[in-house]
Amino acid sequence: MGRVTERRRVIRIRDGAVSTRPDTLVAEEPMEIRLGGKPLAITMRTPGDDFALAAGFLVSEGVLASAAELANIVYCAGATGEGGSNSYNVVDVRLADGVPVPDITLERNVYTTSSCGLCGKASLDAVRTTTRWPLDTSPDTPVLIEPATLSALPDRLRAAQRVFERTGGLHAAALFTTDGELLDIREDVGRHNAVDKIVGRALQQGQLPLSSCVLMVSGRASFELVQKAVMAGIPVLAAVSAPSSLAVDLAVETGLTLVGFLRGTSMNVYAGEHRLALSAAASTD
């Protein structure tokens, strides 16, 4: 099976001095996801938690919502040029009896990715009407999280990134309680894969929906990441960088609390502020 990191020779130049040394890089390999034996998607990922990645991807696609709907996930023989030996880069997902299998020979669903090429309104409507766990959009919802708790999450995320410390080349997604307790963290070369691994592990453990959790990501908040949070029933998504305009639109549409530029005690709340304990004197201009 592919390793999480690999070693490569580099030429290092420091203050005019030239030397050679081995460098630790994050591994990146393609993984094909099949559904009932039929090809569904290919993603570039960091090997590891492959079954969780496939399960989480199918949650965001609206195919899976509970462990009971999943029969099994297995590795398949990949095309390696070595007689069909197992490359551990192809996984096949089998659904439980009675769970409908989408017609994957047709055009993919409109809520698949932020680059689907369809209009924003169609994408927003698709996620809102497809999620099995609509988020509570009532302003009377009890406060779930303190801003000070959110402020502590980036440092806790970074401290738990073991592979990033060796490579500097991985995104991370972490699941926290509303009190700031770390529940799970996954790293991957793709930010969307890291989230899928988090959601997939939760599905395998029978924990969906994640209605009392905060999802923290190490990069920006794209439409795709907001979609994945909503499809998993996660009410709060926080990112250290900026959201896209469509990500904010989707958060508003679905009732997700979306926080961006979370750095130190500073943050921007783009949607769902009713879940934060904000001062009554906060400016609204």
Rank of each mutant, 00 (worst) to 15 (best):
M1R: 11
M1S: 13
G2E: 08
E6G: 06
R14W: 08
R14F: 10
R14M: 05
G16L: 12
G16S: 10
A17I: 14
S19R: 15
R21A: 15
P22F: 04
A27R: 14
E28F: 03
I33S: 00
I33D: 02
G37L: 09
K38V: 15
P39A: 14
D50L: 07
L53G: 04
F57S: 10
G62L: 08
V63L: 04
E69G: 13
L70V: 04
N72L: 09
C76R: 11
T80Q: 08
G81N: 11
G81T: 09
G83V: 04
S85P: 00
V90K: 07
V90L: 11
V93N: 05
R94T: 14
L95I: 01
L95P: 13
P100R: 12
P100N: 08
D103S: 04
R108V: 15
N109F: 01
V110C: 05
T112C: 06
C116H: 12
S123F: 03
D125T: 14
D125G: 07
A126M: 03
T129G: 06
T129A: 15
R132S: 10
L135E: 03
L135M: 04
S138G: 06
P139N: 03
L144Q: 13
P147Y: 01
L150N: 11
S151C: 13
P154A: 07
R156N: 06
R156P: 00
R158K: 07
A159I: 06
A160M: 05
R162D: 03
F164L: 14
R166D: 15
G169P: 00
G169D: 13
A172H: 06
A172K: 07
F176V: 11
F176G: 09
L182M: 12
D184N: 10
D188T: 10
R191K: 09
I198K: 05
R201H: 14
A202P: 03
G206F: 02
S211P: 01
L215D: 05
M216I: 08
L225E: 09
Q227M: 07
Q227F: 00
V230C: 03
A232L: 02
P235V: 03
A238V: 09
S244A: 02
S245E: 12
L246P: 00
L246H: 15
V248C: 07
D249L: 10
L250G: 03
T257V: 06
L262Q: 09
G264Y: 12
T265G: 14
A280P: 03
A282S: 14
D285I: 12
